[in-house]
């Protein structure tokens, strides 16, 4: 009898595990705990890292956060990123469609793009300062420039990789050249267009942070650099986290819009 219950007990435990313990989640939480522990130990016991704030200090810094200032800076950065991004979409998407769809335009435009593209967008900062008088337009130009090429290249790639059968079938059904773009080519290229937009959003954030770090016109990049200058490192780490969060929100936003436009892909 006791033997039996033991067996029953172990079976019960196994079923319980299977039903209620999500090992994947446990490991994920565990990994975070280990990370924080490791960080603390590193900072506390190894002299070399003593300047780096402990997790505890970062956590406590949350309560000292000058909320209105940070919110204002977040707003400024968001404005610059989204402004540049939307201009990038408005210009980059049609250009990508044009050079993806028309072979002549491709031959005419693509080589000059290839020539300019290897220059890192950041290196344009001095020239943008020459061209645009106020900082907002400079920052928006930079984020636009960062977003432009990912969008153009992915739109073009998406269009050139459409399965030839689809436009052929549409042609047979009597779809003309103009309607072809709307009815067949663009829907088929949509997934890759949104891959490009996600990348573009990432680049826009990198550029905005870099540009803000180099000037004193506000924004989260400036906030990080300011705290670095006054050696308030817990706030530096906190600000990094906030920037990361903002970037993640933007990327998720693009993802949600993308999912709407490519909803048929959900079932693949």
């Amino acid at each position: 009898m006791p033997n039996n219950t033991a067996i029953y007990g172990s079976q019960f435990w196994m079923q319980f595990q299977r039903k209620f313990v999500n090992w994947s989640l446990v490991r994920k939480i565990l990994s975070m705990a280990i990370f924080i522990l490791f960080w603390t130990i590193l900072v506390q016991f190894i002299d070399y890292f003593h300047q780096i704030p402990t997790p505890k200090a970062v956590f406590l810094a949350i309560f000292e956060l000058p909320v209105p200032v940070v919110l204002k800076n977040i707003g400024i950065s968001f404005f610059r990123v989204l402004g540049g991004f939307f201009v990038g979409v408005l210009i980059g998407f049609p250009v990508g469609v044009a050079i993806g769809y028309s072979r002549i335009l491709n031959h005419l435009i693509f080589p000059s793009f290839e020539m300019v593209r290897p220059i890192p967008p950041i290196a344009w900062i001095p020239l943008t300062v020459l061209f645009f008088i106020n900082f907002e337009s400079q920052a928006i130009f930079l984020t636009f420039y960062g977003a432009f090429f990912p969008i153009v290249y992915n739109t073009m790639g998406g269009i050139s990789e459409v399965d030839i059968c689809l436009p052929r079938a549409a042609m047979s059904f009597g779809v003309g050249k103009k309607l072809m773009l709307w009815k067949v080519i663009l829907p088929a290229a949509m997934p890759q267009v949104f891959t490009g937009m996600k990348l573009a959003m990432g680049f826009a954030w990198i550029l905005v942070v870099a540009a803000e770090m180099m000037s004193n016109k506000g924004g989260m990049g400036y906030y990080v650099w300011y705290n670095h200058a006054v050696m308030d490192y817990p706030h530096v780490v906190l600000a990094m986290g906030i920037i990361g969060l903002c970037g993640a929100i933007c990327s998720v936003g693009v993802g949600v819009v993308g999912n709407y436009f490519t909803r048929w892909q959900r079932f693949v």
Binding site: G202, W205, I206, W225, H228, V236, V237, M240, I243, G247
Partner: peptide
């Protein structure tokens, strides 16, 4: 991942 690389600069200078 979402933290842009330039934002790491203060930490890099510390390290």
């Amino acid at each position: 991942r979402p933290i842009p690389a330039p934002a790491y600069l203060p930490i890099a200078i510390l390290l």
